[in-house]
């Protein structure tokens, strides 16, 4: 909608809700980036701080929720305005969830850093993390600019995340069977990979919400999926 509301304070309310979501998104993105950074640099210093900061995300989501409900109660939004408020509430809860995954990555990273016998760098994990970070960043841009095409572009890239996850899963199974002393670290690494893969899925969900916001309907095609880790086993491809 190009033109503003006749009651201009309604526009102010919606703008404020958008700002709250942008801040929430920014913090969720930072939490995820910091957790990956701590793992990659084997830096244990920041981990407590990342874990503690999750409470801020929870609080921001709570505040946004209250503001959204207030707007529905007082302004009775319809059509795109209503979709804007509902989508913002949903995306906020997804971002809060992404924060939970980031916190879990941080927790597991600490175990890996403290207990691994030899440094177990993983190329697939690094690529996955970088890709999902980029997707999350772009989906938040797409939300702010209302760019449904960019959102769909992000959604398409989730296939690559799924492929990387499947390949990493197989690699880890092989590594654990060859090096029993790495089972502990590798298991945690597997869960971290799963967390990242889930963040990718949630990012895709946000992309679909942006599409809905713009078009009043969800994308008609089935979301492409390529995660085969749940059917993978040793000795089988």
């Amino acid at each position: 909608m190009a033109s503003g509301h006749i009651v201009a304070s309604f526009d102010d309310d919606l703008a404020e809700l958008n700002k709250m979501l942008a801040r929430l998104g920014g913090l969720a993105e930072k939490q995820f980036a910091d957790a990956i950074d701590a793992l990659e640099r084997r830096d244990i210093q920041n981990i407590d701080e990342i874990i503690a900061r999750d409470a801020e995300l929870d609080e921001m989501e709570f505040d946004l929720n209250e503001r959204g409900i207030e707007i529905i109660a007082l302004r009775a939004p319809v059509a795109q305005d209503l979709r804007r408020v509902i989508v913002t509430l949903k995306v906020a809860s997804v971002l809060e969830r992404i924060g939970d995954y980031a916190k879990n990555v941080a927790k597991r990273s600490r175990v890996i850093i403290e207990h691994e016998n030899n440094k177990s760098d993983n190329v697939s994990l690094a690529r996955m993390a970088a890709l999902v970070q980029q997707m999350l960043n772009q989906v938040l841009d797409a939300y702010v600019s209302g760019d449904a095409d960019l959102a769909m572009d992000v959604r398409d890239r989730d296939m690559e995340v799924d492929r990387l996850h499947t390949s990493l899963f197989r690699e880890m199974l092989a590594r654990m069977s060859e090096n029993p002393e790495q089972v502990s670290a590798s298991s945690h690494l597997l869960f971290i990979a799963k967390n990242i893969e889930r963040i990718g899925d949630h990012t895709t969900g946000i992309a679909e919400q942006i599409f809905f916001l713009r078009n009043g309907q969800f994308p008609s095609d089935e979301r492409p999926k390529a995660d085969k880790s749940s059917v993978s086993a040793l000795g089988r491809n």
Partner: peptide, 17 residues
């Protein structure tokens, strides 16, 4: 009221100029 097809309808029901 949830997804008007016409922008004039949308403007009217959502209180826009």
């Amino acid at each position: 009221f949830s997804n008007p097809k016409n922008t004039q309808t949308e403007a009217y029901i959502s209180g826009r100029i």
